[in-house]
Structures are given as C-alpha cells and as structure tokens.
C-alpha cells in the first residue's frame, strides 16, 4: 500500500487505547509492506501533542482539524473527517486503508468510522483484533459476540477498518523518534461539518450504592477469615480441583 490514514481522537486530551493501537497497527503495516502513514484528528490546538506522540512512533504526516475546543457531534465529526480525507487525497494521492478506533474513550458514539466509510463509499468492518494486508485487499478478524471463535472478513482496498485494543501491543516511542517528531510539521485545516446531534445538555456521575469495604484481616493471618468468607458465600462448597 502507498498510504494509510490513522485517525485518533483527543477530546479532553484522551486518546483511546483503541486509537493507540490503530496508530501502532499503521506503523507495523508500513514497516512490513512499505508505504506512508498520516495521522489525523479533529480537536483543539492542544491535540497537536498527541499528533506528535503518534509521529514519535513512526507516523510520517499529521493533520489537525482544529476546533475551538467545543465538542463536535459525531455527524459533524464524520463529515469533517471525510471532507479532509477527500481534500488530502486529491492533493497527495489516495489512502489504501483508513484506520479508526472502535469507539472513542470519552464520548463513545460508536459511529464516526462508519460515517466516514459510508461518506467515502468504502467498505468497513469494525472491532478488528487482527489485520492482514494482502494484494489489493485486507483481511480483518474479530471475536464472535459470544467469544471463543473468530469471524473474519475480506475487504478490497481502499477500505476502512476500526480496531480494538489487543490487536497489538503498542511500542514506546524512542528518544530519537521523539526528537524527530518535534521538528515535523502539523498541517492545520479548519473543519467543516453539519451539526446534527446528539446535542449534549450536560454530564453527571451515575448514582452508585456501594459502601466502603469491610476489612476482614491483614497480611497472611487473614487467610482463615478469607476462607470463612468463601465458605459463607458458597464459592468453596465443593472440591473443584480436577
């Protein structure tokens, strides 16, 4: 492939673990198959730090769709990203693969990647925990809903895939990587997108009814008290060891 786009999100400056894995996956794909990588986010000026973190891991280019810090809804975000991808592709060539996180950490809308894929008329599969890029296509694997098995899908390139934490173990940035990233340019673009909702009214903490823990002992001497507890709640009833 000659291009990847990795998409991460930084609202409240939280890059979701899924997105960190998307960045890592892109770097690995290019290490294996060649090509180039770009990282893109829609967020406030300060999101530049996270774009540089991605460049420190080996991403080459970065695009910041700079907002004033207010939250953008998922429809507007999807439109803005799709428009930015189109503009970038007409200037710099098409992306073979666009990676997203499965869901953002903070808003958890479960939709931006799908909206971008539909807008760009490209195939998408979500929740990938394995990716294998081949000639002209990519195979994505994910766990079946009940677990214990894997379903897999083949998508012709150009394609869109959203990934989940666990697809890889992201590397730590090297010192030279960090230094290089500091010098690189971040392209800034003003995003455009139609606001359509959901429109946030406010945030609050759920009511939880758990009270403080009862301390049943200290150190190794607590073992009998723990065993009593296990008996009382019925998890020590029968001999379970084979």
């Amino acid at each position: 492939p000659d291009g990847q786009e990795i998409d991460t999100r930084f609202l409240g400056f939280t890059v979701s673990p899924h997105e960190e894995c998307a960045v890592e996956e892109a770097v690995r794909i290019v290490e294996k198959h060649g090509g180039s990588t770009t990282v893109l986010t829609l967020g406030p000026a300060a999101a530049e730090d996270q774009l540089r973190d991605a460049m420190a891991l080996g991403i080459e280019r970065a695009i910041l769709l700079e907002t004033d810090g207010r939250e953008w809804d998922p429809v507007a975000t999807g439109e803005a990203i799709a428009a930015a991808v189109r503009a970038d592709e007409s200037a710099n060539g098409a992306y073979d693969l666009i990676l997203f996180g499965n869901e953002s950490a903070d808003t958890g809308g479960y939709q931006v990647g799908i909206r971008v894929a539909v807008a760009l008329d490209r195939p998408i599969i979500t929740g990938a925990k394995g990716l294998e890029v081949g000639h002209g296509s990519v195979v994505a694997r994910r766990e079946t809903p009940r677990g214990g098995a894997w379903e897999s899908f083949e998508l012709d390139l150009p394609a869109v895939v959203s990934v989940k934490e666990g697809i890889n173990l992201p590397r730590y940035p090297s010192v030279p990587g960090r230094l290089r990233a500091r010098k690189k340019e971040v392209a800034r673009v003003s995003p455009t997108g139609r606001r359509a909702g959901p429109e946030m009214i406010g945030l609050r903490l759920p009511q939880e009814e758990r009270s403080a823990a009862e301390v049943i002992g200290r150190g190794a001497e607590a073992a009998p008290a723990v065993a009593d507890l296990l008996e009382r709640i019925g998890v020590l009833r029968q001999e379970v060891r084979q």
């Binding site: 758990r210 403080a212 823990a213 009862e214 301390v215 049943i216 002992g217 200290r218 150190g219 190794a220 001497e221 607590a222 073992a223 009998p224 008290a225 723990v226 065993a227 507890l229 296990l230 020590l236």
Partner: peptide, 23 residues
Amino acid sequence: MAVADYAVIGDLGQVVPAISAEI
C-alpha cells in the same frame, strides 16, 4: 476500598498463597 465489599490489607505475595494453603 470504596468499591470492594471486603478487603485484606497486605502484600498479595503473602496473602494469596496463604489463602490457597488455607483452602
């Protein structure tokens, strides 16, 4: 501690094997 129902304060390296031995 605010979430748990019960707690043992101590080093798990000692507490866990002691629980297994007791069982």
